[in-house]
Simulated scan of single mutants.
Amino acid sequence: MSGRIDARFKALKEEGRAGLVTFLCAGDPDIPTFETILAGLPQAGADLIEIGMPFSDPMADGPAIQAGNLRALKNGISVARTLEIVRRFRAADPATPIILMGYYNPIHHYGRHGFLDDAKEAGVDGLIIVDLPPEEDEELCLPALERGLNFIRLATPTTDAKRLPAVLANTSGFLYYVSLTGITGVKSAAAGEVGEAVARLRASTDLPIAVGFGIREPEQAAAIARHADAAVVGSALVSELASCLDEEGRPQPGLVEAVLGKVQALAQGVRGARRK
């Protein structure tokens, strides 16, 4: 399979650097503000964009992203509206890869085949569905691959040599290494441990390896970028956004600039990292 994700990682390899993957919840804090941020992410330095599909019970996410989910749901976001946002983004940006991250319940409610068809048509490139294990590949993974959508799987510090082949079997685009056990945004990753883990994973796959969880500052992003093919930052961006809301959850002046400024700083960290 070849698409925008493969093309972007190929370009990054040719540049001799790692990429920055940014995560925000679709529709957070409201749909117009989110779309403004989304449109500015590539210029700010996001190489790939991960969009969370808000769900009322995001069990793998920490407090910051849980709050982002709830804000977005309160403001009327849905799977259908998320796909509309991607469609509008794609009309203006034909190149930046878009990955939807979420849980299976909203997709099942939407209708899995209809969702995959509509996601492909909207310009989505890949999916990360955290609560569908490899044993359930026939449910969504294989139909997604048939439509040319990358299905991106998570590996963790507890993914042992016996489990890894199942994780890798139908994974495409890249492998997402979760550098910490537990939920997002509550601890920081140790670069040395990440380096060892990435080396182990590289022995089993040729896929690019993106590392996320616990990356908050440019220095941390740079440390990860020395080992991995991309650094993924989510909770830090959602927290930056939340810090620019008033007591009613409404965006204050400067919110968009603050979030994109954080992305720019992280991107500079990643781009300045010397690869191991």
Rank of each mutant, 00 (worst) to 15 (best):
P63L: 08
P54L: 13
L201Q: 00
Q66A: 14
F213A: 01
L164Y: 04
G111W: 15
I215L: 07
V186C: 07
A199M: 00
V198K: 01
H227E: 12
P134K: 11
A11T: 14
G45M: 02
T171W: 05
F34L: 11
A191L: 02
A169S: 07
R81D: 08
Q252R: 15
P157R: 09
V194P: 06
V167S: 13
N105H: 10
G19E: 10
G16M: 12
P251N: 09
P134R: 13
L20I: 05
G123P: 01
A210F: 15
A161H: 10
K74S: 13
A231C: 11
A18Q: 02
E15S: 14
G148F: 12
P157Y: 11
A222P: 03
Q252C: 02
G272A: 05
R8A: 03
L20W: 04
A60F: 00
G195C: 01
D28I: 08
F9E: 01
I51A: 08
Y110I: 08
A223H: 08
M59I: 15
G261V: 06
G123M: 03
A223K: 05
G123S: 03
E15P: 00
P134L: 07
A199S: 07
L70D: 06
G269D: 05
A26L: 11
A230S: 07
R163L: 12
G111A: 06
E135I: 13
F23L: 14
A155N: 02
R200V: 04
S188K: 14
G123N: 02
G148S: 05
D28N: 11
R71I: 13
P63I: 06
R274A: 03
E257I: 12
S2L: 12
A11S: 11
S78A: 02
A197N: 02
L180I: 11
K262E: 05
E84G: 10
C244S: 02
S2V: 14
P94N: 10
A197C: 05
I183A: 06
F151N: 01
V211M: 07
A242M: 13
L164F: 11
S204A: 15
R81N: 04
E138R: 14
I215N: 01
R202Q: 10
G272D: 02
A230H: 05
R147I: 03
R275D: 02
L245F: 09
C141F: 13
P58K: 10
R163T: 08
E257P: 01
R4F: 15
D125N: 15
I129T: 13
R250F: 02
R88T: 03
G40P: 04
L83I: 14
F115R: 15
Q220F: 08
E247T: 04
T181P: 00
Q264K: 12
E247V: 10
D206H: 09
A18P: 05
I99T: 12
L38F: 15
R163M: 09
T158M: 03
A221Q: 04
E14D: 12
M53N: 01
E240C: 14
V130Y: 08
T33Y: 15
V263D: 03
Q66G: 07
G76D: 07
L73A: 05
P58H: 04
E15I: 09
R88N: 12
